[in-house]
């Protein structure tokens, strides 16, 4: 075994920091986009119109049965062509790897968030829905003002847990050679031939961040539970 070189970590800190910023940015954007789209999907799946729930169910189940790596590849190669078809541009629309990753994660995570939001919507008692309708609220009004706020609040801990999973999953953008936290570590490790130091260090960063987040979620869980 060769000598441990702590210097390489110090030298690469600014680069790792840049990578971490991208990872966090990707996580947060995908979380927001995923929850919004996921909520829409959940509403579609709970609707009684076949035209709404069939495609939504197919989408959610389909996405959930294939690996994220495969989805990343799919979207990387397909998104420019889809955008071209949608916008009727003369040539494929240029999408950088970062944007492609962002689109992929929003669409992929939406399937998972939608399952959580579906359970959340179902956790609101039927009486409340009936009460909202009785008050003369339309479907969208009762959703927006009565059901979703409660569903969302009940599900906050689970949504956040899913976000921790999402944060860890963002490391897979490595397959596109993107400089996220892991990508930065790999590039430095390979250039300087210092795999052991860099990989252990990056594992430590992921661990500390995910662990801290999950402890926060646990605290939040007890607080939310008390309020309920």
């Amino acid at each position: 075994m060769h000598a441990i070189d702590f210097d390489v970590i110090q030298r690469s800190l600014p680069f790792l920091w840049k990578g971490l910023q991208f990872s966090v940015q990707l996580t947060v954007t995908a979380m927001i986009g995923g929850i919004i789209l996921g909520t829409l999907l959940a509403m579609m799946r709970l609707s009684s119109f076949k035209l709404l729930y069939l495609p939504a169910t197919a989408y959610v189940n389909g996405i959930r049965s294939i690996p994220l790596v495969l989805v990343i590849f799919w979207f990387y190669f397909m998104v420019p062509l889809i955008l071209q078809a949608v916008t009727r541009a003369p040539s494929p629309v240029h999408v950088g790897p970062e944007k492609s990753a962002l689109i992929t994660f929003i669409l992929f995570q939406a399937a998972y968030y939608s399952e959580i939001m579906r359970a959340g919507i179902q956790s609101v008692s039927r009486g409340q829905v009936s009460a909202a309708y009785a008050l003369g609220l339309t479907y969208f009004q009762s959703m927006a003002q009565v059901i979703l706020p409660q569903a969302f609040r009940n599900m906050i801990p689970i949504l956040l847990t899913q976000t921790i999973v999402l944060f860890q999953d963002t490391s897979l953008v490595y397959v596109l050679s993107i400089t996220d936290l892991l990508g930065a570590a790999v590039k430095t490790a390979q250039r300087d031939g210092r795999l052991v130091e860099m990989y252990v260090f990056v594992a430590l960063i992921y661990f500390v961040l995910s662990y801290a987040l999950s402890e926060l979620v646990k605290r939040l869980q007890t607080r939310v539970a008390v309020i309920r």
């Binding site: 397909m78 240029h94 950088g96 790897p97 050679s177 993107i178």
Partner: peptide, 21 residues
């Protein structure tokens, strides 16, 4: 000028689908 990292595996699909010029 936008710089897009590619690998041996992604370079040809990316040229073909117009992601890189």
């Amino acid at each position: 000028v936008v710089l897009n990292p590619v690998t041996s595996q992604t370079r040809i699909p990316l040229i073909a689908n117009g992601s890189i010029d």
